[in-house]
Simulated scan of single mutants.
Amino acid sequence: MQRRAQRADQRTLRASRLSRVLAGAAAVPVMLIAAGCSSDSGAGADAEQASASPASATASPTPTVQAAAYAKLPEPCSVLSKKTLEELVPEAGASGKESTSDDVSLRAGCSWDSLDNNGVRGSQFRWLNVSLLRFESDVTRGTGEQRAQEYYAKQVAEAKSAEGAQNTGAEPLTGTGDQATAVRYDLKKKEGAFKQQTVVARVENVVVTLDYNGAGLAGDSTPDADELMKAARQAADEAVAAVTEANGTDASAAPGSTAAPSASAAKSAAAAATSSGTPLKAG
């Protein structure tokens, strides 16, 4: 009887232990599931954050500017024909005096002077100067044409406000490049009364400034300003044509029309041309 009771107690004890083991085993999957949910939640957050970030930064576009139409300048002392030089500066001879330049592809000029001595009747003095300035396109300063327009306006303003000028007059010209202005004034010096004519012209990205003046010295008569201006305009037309021809464009195109860029000009790189010049004045 006593043994039967002991066996019953042992069975009860084993059943209690089995219950505890089973309860513990059942808790393990619950913990694993909870841990798995926690891990999946973190991975999902990381994926969401990664998808919100840009895959790669977009590169900023490189600034560009339209290439200048003209890539070079003509030989400055050859822009005028022999016939024109004989008419404007008859005693100057065949060659002129070329101005100094750090870069003749950007800046060039040439001048001639003539003194026709008439003995006791005095003499006739003439002075002619052609200056050429070419502007290249630059991403910070603008296109070559825009820069040439600015310099053109500056040259016209300087001609109108020349020191000591009297009876100043200005008029726009047609048929000489893309823009042109003629400025005239009188200038009295101890040598005589000078009649100054200045023609400023722009063709594409090049500005041509032509100065022509004359005076009757030692008692000779003062030259006619209208005749001098007519000659100056003729010379300016030749200088503009020389610029277009030097760049391979058709100089016989309609006056004032925009010339087509040459093949070499289309390939020219953007660069700065910051220098500017003031035409010389005789006397």
Rank of each mutant, 00 (worst) to 15 (best):
L217F: 06
A218D: 12
A218C: 13
A218K: 10
A218N: 11
G219P: 07
G219N: 11
G219L: 04
D220W: 05
D220P: 04
D220Y: 10
S221M: 12
S221K: 15
S221D: 15
S221Q: 14
T222N: 04
T222D: 06
T222M: 12
T222L: 11
T222V: 13
P223G: 03
P223H: 12
D224I: 06
D224W: 08
A225S: 10
A225D: 05
D226W: 08
E227D: 15
E227F: 11
E227G: 15
E227K: 15
E227H: 09
L228H: 02
L228V: 09
L228M: 13
L228K: 06
L228P: 08
M229P: 01
M229D: 13
M229L: 10
K230I: 13
K230D: 14
K230A: 14
K230Q: 10
K230W: 13
K230P: 10
A231N: 11
A231T: 05
A231S: 15
A231P: 01
A231K: 11
A232D: 02
A232W: 07
A232I: 09
A232G: 14
A232Y: 00
R233C: 12
R233I: 12
R233W: 08
R233N: 15
R233E: 15
R233V: 13
Q234H: 14
Q234P: 11
Q234L: 12
Q234S: 15
A235Y: 01
A236E: 09
A236P: 00
A236M: 02
A236S: 14
A236N: 05
A236V: 12
D237P: 00
D237F: 10
D237E: 15
D237V: 11
E238C: 09
E238V: 13
E238A: 14
E238D: 14
E238W: 10
A239G: 10
A239F: 01
A239E: 05
A239V: 07
V240L: 13
V240G: 04
V240K: 07
A241S: 08
A241Y: 02
A241D: 07
A241T: 02
A241Q: 03
A241K: 04
A242I: 03
A242F: 01
A242L: 05
A242N: 03
V243D: 02
V243Q: 07
V243F: 09
T244F: 05
T244L: 07
E245M: 11
E245R: 03
E245H: 13
E245G: 09
E245P: 03
A246L: 09
A246V: 12
A246E: 02
N247K: 03
N247V: 01
G248Y: 01
G248A: 04
G248M: 06
G248R: 12
G248F: 06
G248N: 08
G248K: 00
G248I: 00
T249E: 08
T249I: 05
D250W: 02
A251D: 00
S252R: 04
S252L: 02
S252Y: 04
S252G: 09
